[in-house]
């Protein structure tokens, strides 16, 4: 197991640099740079040249990338080209918000999707399945941002139960922190749960017709025992894969929800970085997201071994 983890971590190093290199190249292809943003519309060519030199943007691209890699290799993510804030500080400020939102949304989505998926599978072609399917379709069809705005109108402006946006990150204000999390996490989780519950349903239906389930039923086991001891456990392997991919994609993919609820996450930081051509911010954020992605994938693989003892990761 230890060798497996070490090998996976070593394999991830080229992935890290390749992904940052691709983004570095692509973002430099887009017109405009941080000097142009800082200068605004009034800048003289002389001022622009001076600022570009000050920012190191007049260096050849390979040199700029090499300088960035050299700093990263020493554990230094650099500073924001525009604000001068250390990237590590910016990421440390944003990462907890992103992790808090995604973890909560994932947990909520599992709590919602699991019973809905099971009920759909066990009541297939029944009224309950029809009802659940209709709600699922509705949630999948409603854009996230629209649901978010609707939630703000109802729960913040009309009922005044919850704050419309922002994140309360105060250890002395736990109720405030929870309140600020409810709307964004719920909006995100409902969308996730709609897709996930369908996936669980179809996996369960597939497993229901497998030999081992038929055998379990033939042995006289109750429906509950068949479901939880046999069918669900086997149906969960692909579900865990999907959960892992969803979780990883959510880390950088909650920008719209972050924007609607003014949630200060890494996705929004990177989007600002892209808009402002603040290359160091984008690179640093991407490095963090790729790292998290790799760790999550590793955890998913390790979970396989826990759920299905037949899988021996170290043997590969």
């Amino acid at each position: 197991m230890g060798a497996f983890i070490l090998r996976r971590l070593l394999q991830s190093i080229p992935v890290l640099f390749f992904s940052t290199f691709v983004v570095f190249l692509v973002i430099h292809l887009i017109p405009g740079d941080a000097a142009a943003v800082l200068a605004g519309p009034n800048a003289s060519p002389e001022a622009l040249t001076a600022v570009r030199h000050e920012m190191g943007l007049d260096q050849p691209l390979p040199v700029q990338y090499a300088v960035w890699v050299a700093h990263v290799a020493q554990g230094d993510l650099g500073k924001s080209t525009l604000s001068g804030q250390p990237i590590s500080k910016l990421l440390l400020a944003r990462a907890p918000a992103t992790i808090e939102l995604t973890v909560t949304a994932m947990i909520l989505s599992i709590l919602i999707a699991l019973p809905l998926g099971i009920l759909s599978a066990t009541h297939v072609r029944g009224r309950l399945e029809w009802l659940i399917s209709t709600v699922q379709s509705l949630w999948l069809a409603i854009p996230n941002f629209w649901a978010g705005i609707l939630a703000i109108i109802v729960f913040s402006l009309v009922l005044r139960w919850l704050p419309p946006g922002g994140r309360v990150a105060d250890a002395n204000d736990l109720p405030g922190s929870i309140k600020s999390l409810i709307l964004p996490a719920t909006t995100l989780s409902l969308y996730l749960a709609a897709g996930l519950s369908r996936f669980i349903k179809f996996n369960l239906l597939e497993v229901f017709f497998d030999d081992f389930v038929r055998t379990a039923r033939a042995k006289g086991l109750s429906n509950t025992a068949v479901m939880y001891r046999h069918a669900l456990r086997n149906a969960m392997l692909p579900v865990i894969t999907i959960l892992g991919v969803q979780f990883a994609s959510l880390l950088g993919g909650t920008v719209i929800i972050e924007s609607v609820f003014s949630w200060p996450g890494v996705g929004g930081l990177m989007l600002d970085g892209i808009s402002n051509r603040d290359y160091t911010v984008v690179q640093g954020g991407l490095l963090l997201l790729v790292l998290l992605f790799i760790v999550i994938n590793l955890l998913v693989d390790l979970t396989y071994a826990v759920i299905d003892p037949r899988i021996r990761l170290g043997d590969a």
């Binding site: 992904s19 691709v22 983004v23 984008v282 991407l286 790799i294």
Partner: peptide, 8 residues
């Protein structure tokens, strides 16, 4: 990871 990079 590539998908993340491409998304960005």
């Amino acid at each position: 990871a590539f998908a993340l990079g491409t998304s960005a």
